[in-house]
Each structure stands twice: as structure tokens, then as C-alpha cells.
Amino acid sequence: MHIVEINNLSKQFGRKIAISSLSFDIKKGETVALIGPSGAGKSTLLNILAGSIPPDTGIYLLDGKPIQQYKNRRELANKIGVIRQQFDLVPALPAIHNVLAGRLGEWGFFKSMLSLFVPQDKQAAANALQRVGLLDKMHDQTSRMSGGEQQRVAMARLLVQNPEVILADEPVASLDPARAEDILEMLTKLVAEEKQTLVMSLHSVEYAKKYFSRIVALRDGEIFFDLPTEDITKEHLTGLYSLKELSQE
């Protein structure tokens, strides 16, 4: 039922406490927005959830199994996919290979090498690019694409990878508002179609309310509130950000 369960999670960088005793669960199919001021620990939390940094203390169960027990990258890649700002693509490769990189977990070395010359699973890549509206740019060099297009290529890669949970760290931070809404709309739609779970950090409360079913607010590494979107009031939000000003003084 719960795909992600965390209990008493903490993480410290030197003397700086980035995450302190966080506990919450995420149900399959939920869309969770992580909001909160800069330095609240959103990226740190997402990195822990992705398994790319280990927590100092606490328990993190992914689909009922402690994250440390996912020894195999491929097994983890089936569960969790990550999307960040558009810098996580390889600019020198054509879009199709960036998309097919989502298959690397399943492919062996020789198949992945062959694919650079004769694309394997081309149909899967084409389908994914079609769904993000970039079929005609399949063979374009990724570096020549706009920021929004690159972010859609990254989404196509996630479609090919097809993990159960998608973690997104400010995926629209460097896009203009129209492009950002495009990407958010597309991503939440795809997640709903694939019955995936989505956790995304965002700076915009407005987008969080518009596209997500649940909002978790972090402040100084702690949960400030964790509510269904419809229960969130102005007071909650002014609280979150006014406290930020207090703590900065």
C-alpha cells in the first residue's frame, strides 16, 4: 500500500543539519509536492529517497524493503526514476540515445554499445518521444534543443525507464512560466496514465496547489505541514514563509 515509508530520517553535513527526524509515508499513486524555503532540505530528502546519498539515521523502506537492500542498480532503477534540471542529459548525444539511456538498467554492455550504432528498442524510444511531442526531433543533437525540449527528452527517458516512483527536483526551475506549466502538466498526466507515484520539489506554491494531491512543506529539515492540497490555507503558507524570514534574521 505504501510505496515509500520513512521513519526518523536524518542527515547532517558537517555541523549543518539538513534533515532532522523526518517521518512520513507515501501511498502508491500519490502526487506529492515538496515546498519550503531555500535550504529547507528538499534536495537532500529527494537524494536520500533516490538512494544516491545514505541517511545518517532512520529507516527508509521502498516498497516494503529497506533501501540498503537494493544492491542491484537495475532493481532500484525499476523502482525509482529521477528528473532534475535539464543538465542531466548528455548534450553530445542525439535525443534518441538520451531516451534509450532509460533502458541501460536492462541492457547488457554489448547491447548498449550496439545501440549507439543501431538503436535498439527504437519503437520504445519513438513511443516515448511521441508522448512528449518530440517525435520529429528524435535524431537531433540534444545540445541544440531548448531547455523545455530537453526537459521533455528527460521525461521520455523516464517513460522508457518506467519506474514506479518518480522523484523530481525542481524540474521546471530554469524554464519560463508557460514552458514550466507545459512540463508540469505533461509530467503529472504521464504519471497518472502510468499509475506512478510522483514526488517533486517546487518553489511555486501555486503550481504545487494546481498539480498535486498532497503538499509537504519542509523548513529547516523538519516537516512544517503535510496536508492534502484542498486543506491548505493562507495561514499555513504565510506561516511557512514568514518563519523563513524570522530564521534568516
Binding site: 532500484l76 532503477a77 529521477v82 532534475r84 542531466d88 532509460g102 538498467g105 536492462e106 554499445m113 549507439l116
Partner: peptide, 19 residues
Amino acid sequence: EPIQALRAAGASRLQCLLY
């Protein structure tokens, strides 16, 4: 960043070299 993203997509070290 691109390398971390490849690792997150399940790529091995040799595959990271290639892609």
C-alpha cells in the same frame, strides 16, 4: 549531473562510459 542521472537510470560504470 549527466553521469548521476545515468547511474540513477540503472547504468553500470561501463555503460556510463559509453553513454
